[in-house]
C-alpha cells in the first residue's frame, strides 16, 4: 500500500510528467552550460616585424597554455592542446594561415626559418615568434627569372598527394598529407606568375578519393600535371604511367582509366626533363619508375608523380622549395622547346 501513490502518479501521469520535464530541462541547461564552459576559447593576434612574425594566442585558461605543445616542420607550426577549445579568430597577417583540427591549431607561415616559444600569464598567452629569412639572404631567383616565355601559355595542375584521414607517410614531426599541401601551395605561388594558369587539385587538408581527383582533373584542359608525394627513400622518384601492352586505340579513346596512353611519350620526356633539373638544381639522385598509377593514368595531358624524400632526409626550407620550383620551370621550358 505504501507504493500505491507512486503507482497512481505513473498511471495519471500529468503532474509528475511536468515535474520530470522541468527536471530534464534543468539537467540539459546545466549540461550545456558545463559543456560550453568546458571549452576555452583562443584568440589569435599576429604582428609583422622585420624578419619576424609574432603570433600571440590568448585564452582565459592557464592550463590550456601551460599544457600546450608546439612543434614545427618546414613552414608548418603545430600547437597541440591537452583539452578541447574553440578558435575565435583574430588579427591574422597575410603570410600566416591558421586552421584548427581536433585539439590542435596549425599555423602555416610562409618561408618559416625557426620559432621561439614563450608562455606568459595574466592573461594566459602563448607567444610564438616565427623567424623569416633576411632579405639579403633570399635564395637566388635567377633560374626563376630565366626566360620562361615558352610556358606562358601553359595551364599546369598541381596535386598534393593524400589528405585528411589518408595521411600518407608519417614521421615524428610531419605528415605527408600536410607537407605535400604546403609544398603544392608554395609551388603554386612560384609557378603562377610564369604560367597562364596554375590549378591546385587539393587546397585543404581533406580526404579526396582517387576517383574524385580524376573527375576534378578532367574538368579542365591542362598542359601538364604534377602529383606531389613523399618517399621513404633518400632519392627522388619520378613516376609515369604504365599502360598495359594490349591497349587498343579504342580503349585509349573511350576508357578514362587509360587516357594517359596518348600522352605517355610526352610524359616520359617531361619526367626526364624534371629529373635532370632536380639532379642538377637540388643535388638529389633521381629514379624513374613506370607503374600503373590510376591517377596519372587517367590524365589527358603529360602527367608525372614526383616523390620527394621525407624531412628526415631533405630539409624543407624555402630554398628547397625554390629549387624545386626552379627545376619544374626549367624542365617545362626544356620540354616546351622540344
Amino acid at each position: 500500500m505504501k507504493n500505491f501513490p507512486i503507482y497512481d502518479y505513473y498511471i495519471n501521469g500529468k503532474k509528475p510528467m511536468s515535474r520530470i520535464s522541468v527536471l530534464i530541462l534543468i539537467l540539459i541547461m546545466v549540461f550545456v552550460d558545463v559543456a560550453v564552459a568546458g571549452d576555452s576559447s583562443i584568440k589569435v593576434n599576429c604582428s609583422e616585424q622585420s624578419g619576424m612574425i609574432r603570433v600571440v594566442l590568448e585564452t582565459d585558461s592557464e592550463s590550456l597554455i601551460n599544457q600546450s605543445n608546439v612543434s614545427e616542420s618546414y613552414s608548418l607550426i603545430k600547437i597541440s592542446f591537452s583539452e578541447p577549445f574553440s578558435y575565435k579568430g583574430g588579427a591574422v597577417v597575410e603570410s600566416v594561415k591558421i586552421y584548427k583540427k581536433e585539439d590542435s591549431l596549425f599555423l602555416n607561415v610562409k618561408n618559416l626559418q625557426k620559432i621561439k616559444v614563450v608562455r606568459l600569464s595574466s592573461p594566459p598567452r602563448l607567444v610564438i615568434d616565427a623567424y623569416l629569412p633576411e632579405q639579403k639572404k633570399k635564395p637566388p631567383t635567377e633560374i626563376l627569372q630565366a626566360d620562361a616565355k615558352e610556358i606562358r601559355n601553359f595551364t599546369l595542375m598541381l596535386d598534393a598527394g593524400h589528405g585528411g584521414s589518408d595521411t600518407g607517410i608519417t614521421g615524428q614531426q610531419f605528415k605527408e598529407s600536410l607537407l605535400t599541401l604546403s609544398i603544392a601551395n608554395d609551388l603554386y605561388k612560384q609557378l603562377a606568375p610564369k604560367a597562364q594558369k596554375v590549378l591546385l587539385l587539393r587546397r585543404e587538408d581533406v580526404y579526396q578519393s582517387l576517383e574524385q581527383r580524376i573527375t576534378d582533373a578532367g574538368k579542365t584542359r591542362i598542359d601538364a600535371f604534377f602529383s606531389i608525394h613523399l618517399t621513404n627513400q633518400k632519392y627522388c622518384s619520378i613516376f609515369i604511367s604504365k599502360i598495359p601492352a594490349n591497349t587498343s586505340s579504342k580503349d585509349i579513346k573511350y576508357n578514362v582509366a587509360l587516357a594517359q596512353s596518348a600522352y605517355i611519350e610526352r610524359s616520359r620526356v617531361l619526367a626526364h626533363a624534371i629529373g635532370e633539373a632536380i639532379k642538377e638544381g637540388m643535388k638529389l639522385d633521381v629514379v624513374y619508375v613506370e607503374a600503373p598509377l590510376p591517377l596519372i593514368s587517367a590524365i589527358r595531358a603529360p602527367a608525372i608523380m614526383i616523390e620527394l624524400p621525407t624531412p628526415a632526409t631533405l630539409s624543407y626550407s624555402a630554398e628547397t622549395i625554390n629549387s624545386l620550383a626552379a627545376s619544374i620551370i626549367k624542365a617545362l621550358v626544356d620540354y616546351a622547346q622540344r
Partner: peptide
C-alpha cells in the same frame, strides 16, 4: 595507401611489368 586502387581485383595492377630507373 592512396596510390593504387584496392577496389578492383589485384591481377590487373600487380602483374604489369614495372620499369625502374634508366
Amino acid at each position: 595507401g592512396g596510390h593504387f586502387y584496392l577496389k578492383y581485383p589485384l591481377k590487373g595492377i600487380v602483374t604489369q611489368e614495372i620499369v625502374v630507373d634508366g
